[in-house]
Design a protein around this nucleic acid. Sequence first.
DNA 1: ATGAATTCTGAATCTAGGG
DNA 2: TCCCTAGATTCAGAATTCA
Lengths: 374, 374
Amino acid sequence: MGVIDRKRVAARRAVTPAPLPLDTILRGDCIAAMKALPAASIDCIFADPPYNLQLGGDLNRPDGSHVDAVTNDWDKFDSFATYDRFTRAWLKEARRILKPDGTIWVIGSYHNIFRVGAAVQDLGFWILNDIVWRKANPMPNFRGTRFTNAHETLIWASMGEKARYTFNYRSLKTLNDELQMRSDWEFPICGGPERLKQDGVKVHPTQKPEALLYRILLASTQPGDVVLDPFFGTGTTGAVARRLGRRYIGIEREDAYVAAAEARIAAALPLDESLLVTMQAPRNAPRVSFGTLVENNIVAPGTLLTDAKRRWQAVVRADGSLACNGSEGSIHKLGATLQGAPSCNGWTFWHHQQGDALSPIDTLRQTWLLATQP
Amino acid sequence: MGVIDRKRVAARRAVTPAPLPLDTILRGDCIAAMKALPAASIDCIFADPPYNLQLGGDLNRPDGSHVDAVTNDWDKFDSFATYDRFTRAWLKEARRILKPDGTIWVIGSYHNIFRVGAAVQDLGFWILNDIVWRKANPMPNFRGTRFTNAHETLIWASMGEKARYTFNYRSLKTLNDELQMRSDWEFPICGGPERLKQDGVKVHPTQKPEALLYRILLASTQPGDVVLDPFFGTGTTGAVARRLGRRYIGIEREDAYVAAAEARIAAALPLDESLLVTMQAPRNAPRVSFGTLVENNIVAPGTLLTDAKRRWQAVVRADGSLACNGSEGSIHKLGATLQGAPSCNGWTFWHHQQGDALSPIDTLRQTWLLATQP
DNA sequence: ATGAATTCTGAATCTAGGG
DNA sequence: TCCCTAGATTCAGAATTCA
C-alpha cells in the first residue's frame, strides 16, 4: 500500500536480475515467452490483449495450443470460457514476473474488459484505478442503433492490497496544469503520420496512440524501469519507452508486426536525460525536523508562533517542542490538539512574524534546505 | 438484433400482463420481490446495486475535516465470491421478468463493475454499450496516491445477441445538438436542491442525479413503458419515470428510503415539453493543458521557451514542466516565480521561436483545438 | 439587498517509516 | 505485526456568512 519514493526505487533497481532480454522483441506466444522470464523481474506491464472473442485466430489455450477457427455458430458460454482461460493464463504469468511493487495496465472495450477485470481481481491484483480513454474522434455508429462507442477502458492494478507501487503524482499534476489528473483522459485515435502504413494500408488494426503510453509510463514508472508488453503489435510501448528512457521487452507473434515495430523503435529518439527530471513530491526531499532549525538558531527558543488567524500563540522551547495554554508537544501534535483535529501539518499551521505579515514556518525549512543542499 | 419501431412497440404493450404493481414501491428484498413478479413483464430495468467498496480506515481532507464515507451495512460483503453469488441471483431474476425485447442498465465503479459485467454476459445478456458517467465535480484524491476517481460506469444490455430493443436514436441526437450521443456523458454529482436531506443530513449516501436517469429513460424506453428499479433507494428512477410519462416499480428494503422516495415522487411533476429543450447543456470549449501539447508532440521536450522580452529562457521537460536557472514548475508557476508575481498566465507569458519572431505558446493551443475539435 | 468571501461536502478500495 | 509519529494532501459547486 502506498507510493514508492526514490530511495526505495534505487534500491530495487539495483537487484534487477541480469539475464533480462532488455530492449528486444521476443517472437512467439506471449504465455510461452513470459514463462521464460525470471520471476519478480519486471517493473511494469502494459497489455493490449485481443478484444473480440470472434477473432478466434488470436486465441491460444493455456497450454499454448491454438484454438481452432471459431465460427459464427459457436456456443456462447464455451467461447467466454475459452477467453477466460486464455486471460487467466497470461495474467498468471504476468503476475509471476512482476516485481512485488510493480503494476499492470490492461486496456480493453466492453467486449472483454469485464472478464479481464474480474480475472485481475480473482488473481489477487488490487485495482488502483480504472481509466477511461475518451476518443476525441471515434468512429460513429453508422446505423444509429447504439450510442457512439467513444471510449476504451484501462485497468491499473498493483500486486495486492498492501503492495507498494510507483505513482508520480507531482509529475501528473504538473502535466495537467496543476490540477490532479483525473480518471478520464482524452486523446485522438492514432492517425496521421504516427499511424504506421504499408502501401497505404494500415499495418495494425488497433495501433494505440503514443500519447496514451506516454501518460501511462510517465505516471507509473521511473527512468530505467523495465516495461513489458506481451501483445506488442507495432511497438507503441517500445517507442515511447525508448523516448522516455525506460527499458522495454516486447512479445509478438506476427512477423509483420515485429518488423514494423523494430524499424519504428529504431527511429524513436530518446529524450536527453536532463529532460526526464520531473516534478518530485516533497516527501522525496530530505527530512528536516523542527528541532534542526532550533539547534541551528534559525528559530530561537522563546520565539512566539501563531496560527494564520492568530487564534493561538505558542512559545518555542529549547528542545523544539511548543507550549501553549498548558498544552505542549511537537509542532504537529500541538496543532492537532489545539484544533481538536486528528492530525495537523505543523509546518503550514504555525506562523512567525515576518515584518508586518505572518509567514508559515515551512518557509524557514525551505530556506534551510536551499542553504544546506548541494 | 435491432431497434424496435413504433408499431411493434404498440403490439407488445397490448399484451402486458395485468397484475403488475405499477407506480408503487415494493418493500423488501429485491430477489424475493422480483420472484413475485410475472415473467416477461418489464420493459426496462435500471439497477444501482451495492458497489462493495471495501474502504479502509477513516479519511480526512487536507484541512482536517472528515470525509463522510459509505459505511452502510448494505454495502458490506464477505468476499468476491459472496458478491458474485448475490449479483448472479438478482440478475437471474431480472432476466426472467424482462420482456424479450427489454433492456437492463446497471451502474457501478471499478470495485464491482467488472464482476457485474462478466455476470451479465454469462447469463446471456448482450451488451449494447458501456457508458461512462464523467463527474463534473468528483471528490478529489486527497492523499495524492492515485488518479482522481472521476467517473462511474454503466452497462446497457439487451436480452441476447438477436434480441430487439428500444433505442430512440433521433431523440438522443436532438438532445445532443444534432450530434450522435456518445458513450461518455458528463453530469455533476447529485447536489443542490435535488439532494434529499433530513435535518441537514443526506438521506441516502449515493443518490443519483436525475439528469442521468432522464437520459437513460429517454434513450431506452417509450412513454407508458414499465421501468423496474430493484435498488430503489430514494427513488430517482421513479421521479424521472413519472416526469417522463413512464410507469415505475421500485423495490427497497430500508423504510427510511421508501418514505423519502414516496414523498419525492408525489412531488414530481410531468415535465413540460418546453423544458426538454432548455435541459440541453451548452457545449463549452474543452480545457487543454500544456501537458496535452507535450504528450502529443506539438511541443517536444527540450524545446526552449522565452518570455516576450527574452529575459528568461526555459526548457520543456517530459512531464510538461519547465526548468530555468535552477527553478522549475508548470508554465504558470515558473512564470510567476521568475517575475516574483503571485500568478502568471503561462500561455501568454511564454513564447517559442517562430521563424525570426517569437510567438506565444497560446497559439499552439489554439492550433491544437482547431485540429482536434469537430 | 447585493456581492464577496468563506465554509462545507461528495460511492474513496487514499501514507511512510521506525521501533 | 502492531503501534506511534512525522507530515503530506483537494476540486468544483453549493451553502452560508460577511461586508
